[in-house]
Write a protein that binds this DNA or RNA. Structure first.
Ligand SMILES: [Mg+2]
Ligand SMILES: [Mg+2]
Lengths: 412, 412
DNA sequence: ATTGTAAACATGTTTATTTT
DNA sequence: AAAATAAACATGTTTACAAT
């Protein structure tokens, strides 16, 4: 309890929490009856309510091993501690371990911490606490001075690996939630391409740290091995891997802006929120997305999308998504072709050298007619069924086992 | 353009933006026709699209004075610059000015920057750029070394004043938007109460920096002088002013948890999002909320709410809000009474000394029956009409003149 | 090539001190 | 009392480099 909180009111609240007068979250039955009480009786006054709360608590008292109030949700599980010690190799007689703390990497430890949390998400400080609680080595280095190193590494790993996804905290002023994106099979991902793309195309063996051996640590099924796209965002991601930072062209901005959104539904009604479907700093998840087969696959989807685009109204929020996806696909396809033909600068030069004609208001331009560039790609049209419902569903990038779609927070 | 972005693809994109090949956002007519084109024709290829874009651009070319690509939206407005110079007093012959840069405070400058932006929001680096662009003094101190001081002050002001509200950026990895909350008439707000509450009760004169004189800088109406509550959140804010940090009691958490939410509507379906209606670090907006009249007003609302609470289902998301509001009201009312009676510790002692009885599952407890505390408050019941629609409306804390409800971003 | 480690840096929050 | 100023600190992002 901070000394600066001098008022009685604050003291009361602190005591309520710190002395665990309230039942833990496991006692939800009691609370249902409490709700009934409130609904059946007239207005309960505070002190009476407190009496009632006292009556119902206590039996569910749980020892809180964490230091401060922000880590209330962290409970010590001896069984888990044992399992982790085994995985670390601390119970083996071997003297040589991968790291000072055992045989697990930082990424694996962080994944364990998050996966063993109630809501599959933790704040940075909660991750720190988890480490101190479960990893003996870090427990010995918990003080300010000696913790700087490994805490830095924790932060480094959270940022570096794209399987760790930061979600803004709903409570203003509190730090973000760190979650796990199970679709990112590749735990470690470069944020920026190395200088030349030659080295990039080599196939890379990626390890999956998230679902390892023991059953207690993870009840998550790993049934997402197929290369089908799970969301529009995934498609975009695969397109934008080679760009370090991506600014959406103004033209697209305007197109989106000019199509007024629906007020209903889950879709947000501002242009800006549409951008939430456009993560600027994207990362290649599966290298094999590069293969020509996959390019054709995109082609297929894109072709389907463009046909459906003609049938729906501007006001339909799906319209915006489709435009987005198509534009991206086309731009990247064109560029991919340029790369393959080794005439990298042609396209660019051509565009830059084109003298700007006068504006044609509301003109009916035929895009397929004009000028330039021999990059005609064969468009494979198949029986790919890609209707609205499908797109709609695809966009729900739900986590498998979490109770709610945590990534909605970043969408809306 | 960064040297590290070596791929042609990136170069293309950069050129598109930096050379302003795309029309500015004012040319939405062109874009509508472009959308029609896409819908009417078959699939437009990238290079054709580019040609079209070139045709339509150029006339709307605007000089971009900002240094790097993240500040694309910042345009230099000579007229605005002139107005600001006048407000700074740079055109006066006076030698003595409030600050080295003129007669406006940091808070006033930041407010001007945001209010003159397209979308009424800027990132931190955009605010920096605005200062360098419009304030001569800062323009002379734009380099790394000499800018640390005033940039620190900018950040300090953004955090300190609760009229500046931080909204997470929809684009993952980008820094937050800074917006203005026009309901916060008091620009400066302490984040934490000073040591003793004696000094707090003195009435404080607060200045409103947001709508000052000139018409160009602000088309915002200042018609929120009444003390009526504009949202449930406002009510909560006024309750929680005296708490530096507020953890919601577990009991309430459980109550909310046990009432399953509806899947429809704008309301989020996770307990955690309910907390978004419960800003932990709240701040007193109007000191007069302390007065007894206002306490009774809350009493009124609270009473109404509690009656309606009895009529609605747990699954109704409004139910949660009402519980929230009522609980808060009662707790604070009780504490307020304790303070008035100068028996501050009685209530607390009583609660702490109460021996915890055994749990009563699904019992029908009468809250008004039991024990303790002589703090019976007279509940004024009036004709206050507070139905669902009202609550629903109250929660839409829309900005007056902004095109969309930017604060929805922090709600959902 | 993967991982650990250090460090520079940006962005926010908060407290303390000085100036006015 | 309000504003400017300095500074400590937490949280994230990114680069560099060493160890394996
Ligand atoms: Mg990450
Ligand atoms: Mg603020």
């Amino acid at each position: 309890m901070r000394a600066s909180c001098s008022s009685i009111v604050t003291d009361d609240f602190d005591d309520f929490n710190e002395k665990n007068l309230y039942p833990s979250s496991s006692s939800s039955n009691n609370c249902i009856s409490l709700i009934n009480d409130i609904q059946n009786n007239d207005f309960p006054f505070f002190d009476d309510l407190n009496d009632e709360i006292c009556k119902r608590s206590d039996s569910h008292y749980e020892q809180d091993l964490s230091q401060n109030s922000s880590q209330k949700t962290l409970h010590y599980d001896p069984q888990l501690a044992n399992l982790i010690e085994n995985e670390l190799g601390l119970n083996d007689c071997q003297t040589s371990r991968k790291n000072a703390w055992g045989n697990l990497s930082y990424a694996e430890l962080i994944a364990k911490a998050i996966q063993n949390s109630d809501q599959q998400r933790l704040t940075l400080s909660q991750i720190y606490s988890w480490m101190i609680l479960y990893i003996p080595y870090f427990r010995d280095k918990a003080d300010k001075k000696s913790s700087t190193g490994w805490k830095n590494s924790i932060r480094h790993n959270l940022s570096l690996h794209n399987c760790f996804v930061r979600i803004p905290n709903e409570i203003a002023g509190k730090s973000s939630w760190w979650t796990i994106d199970h679709r990112a099979k590749q735990v470690r991902g470069r944020k920026r391409l190395q200088s030349n793309e030659n080295s990039t195309k080599s196939s890379k063996t990626t390890t999956n740290y998230l679902n390892k051996s023991n059953s207690t640590c993870s009840n998550l099924t790993n049934n997402q091995q197929s290369t089908t796209f799970t969301s529009v965002r995934d498609i975009n991601k695969s397109f934008y891997h080679h760009l370090s930072t991506q600014t959406m062209p103004n033209i697209l901005h305007d197109m989106l802006k000019s199509s007024s959104p629906l007020q209903t539904s889950n879709y947000s009604n501002s242009v800006d929120n549409i951008y939430s479907l456009n993560p600027t700093k994207c990362e290649l998840i599966d290298n094999e997305y590069y293969s020509l087969n996959n390019v054709n696959e995109y082609e297929m989807i894109s072709s389907k999308l463009s046909k459906q685009l003609k049938t729906i109204d501007h006001s339909n929020p799906l319209f915006r998504r489709m435009v987005l996806t198509i534009m991206r696909h086309q731009m990247n396809k064109s560029k991919l072709n340029n790369n393959n033909n080794n005439n990298n600068n042609n396209e660019r030069e051509k565009i830059l050298s084109t003298p700007p004609p006068s504006i044609i208001e509301n003109s009916q331009c035929n895009f397929n007619s004009s000028s330039s560039s021999s990059t005609t790609t064969t468009t494979t049209t198949t029986t790919f069924d890609f209707d609205f419902e499908t797109i709609y569903d695809l966009d729900k990038t739900t986590f498998e086992d979490s109770q709610f779609n945590i990534h909605d927070l970043s969408h809306f």
